[in-house]
Simulated assay, not measured.
Amino acid sequence: MTDHPTIPMPRDGGWAAYTDYSRRLATLLQDERARAEQQAAASRDGQAAVDQITHRLGTQRQHLHQLAATLRLPEPHVGGIAPGPIPDPAEALRRAAAAADAADVAAENAHRRAAQPPLLPGFTPLARNALVYAAAAMLGTFASLLMFAVSPDADLGRIPWQLVPWSLCGLPALAFFAGYLTISLVGQPRIGGGGTRSARAGGVICFVGMPILWFIFIAATRG
């Protein structure tokens, strides 16, 4: 049978010192145990935060790739990031979350801008299209009047009848298709839909408005 070591009893008041050191040792052990539990909890919280930010970055990367494909932009390159001189893991996580928030704001801003057409984004679709068709009609009318002005018949005081088909049909058709093409290229949102080309309104502006202006010009010059 093995004998257990015995602790010598202190003499001359040594028992009080012994119990005092025992209490101190128990307090130190308790504090160390609490500190270890706090570190373990902090480690678990840190790992959970790392897992959360990793999942968020993965979702964000997928969203950026989808947004680039929708906007017909080059695919974003998301490479590795070299570790920075941030010794505090909590501060590093805070900065990573702040960077992810900034990226979300930038992506939302790009999405919002892409939902608006590049041409006159603050206008309603009808107002934008009407303005485009009106501009095309004005250019077509100017071309018609210029053709009328340089015609030899105009110098003789006669109506250049050979220009009438162009003024009443040809140039309005060109103006309509120019406006329609302009709206199709720069007057439509790249995402979200909601675009319209207002072909009926464009037809009225070009095929009705331009002949009216032409007849007004003829009447003014002949009168």
Rank of each mutant, 00 (worst) to 15 (best):
I86M: 13
R61F: 04
I205H: 05
T27N: 09
L171W: 07
R33K: 15
F177V: 14
A154N: 11
G203I: 08
P5I: 00
P125D: 07
A34L: 15
R95D: 04
H4A: 08
T221C: 06
G157K: 01
N109F: 02
V186C: 07
F142R: 11
A82R: 14
R158Q: 13
Y133R: 07
R94Y: 02
A16Q: 10
A110R: 09
A90F: 00
D51I: 02
A178G: 11
T6F: 01
I159N: 03
T27W: 04
L71P: 00
L171P: 07
V186P: 02
T182K: 00
T141D: 06
R200T: 14
G84N: 06
R23K: 10
R94S: 08
G14D: 06
G194K: 08
R44E: 15
N109Q: 14
E91P: 00
I191W: 04
M147R: 14
R23I: 12
T54L: 11
L64M: 15
L146C: 09
Y18T: 02
G187W: 02
H63S: 13
P87T: 12
A103V: 05
Y21Q: 10
T141M: 10
R95G: 00
P118N: 04
A201F: 08
S184M: 04
A173N: 07
Y21W: 10
D45P: 00
I53V: 13
A42E: 13
R11T: 13
R112S: 13
F148I: 10
T19I: 09
F142T: 14
M210F: 05
P172S: 07
D45T: 06
T6V: 07
T221A: 13
R95I: 14
R61D: 14
R44Q: 12
R222Y: 10
G187Q: 03
L28W: 12
A199R: 13
E91M: 08
A90I: 02
A92I: 00
L64Q: 13
P125V: 08
W161E: 07
T196Y: 03
P76H: 10
A136H: 03
A48C: 04
T2A: 08
I212E: 05
P87I: 10
G203P: 02
Q60I: 07
G84S: 10
Q66S: 11
Q162F: 05
A42M: 07
R190D: 03
A107V: 02
Y180P: 02
T2L: 08
P160T: 01
R128G: 04
F142C: 11
D101E: 12
V50M: 07
T54F: 04
Q66K: 13
Q52G: 04
A127I: 14
G195M: 05
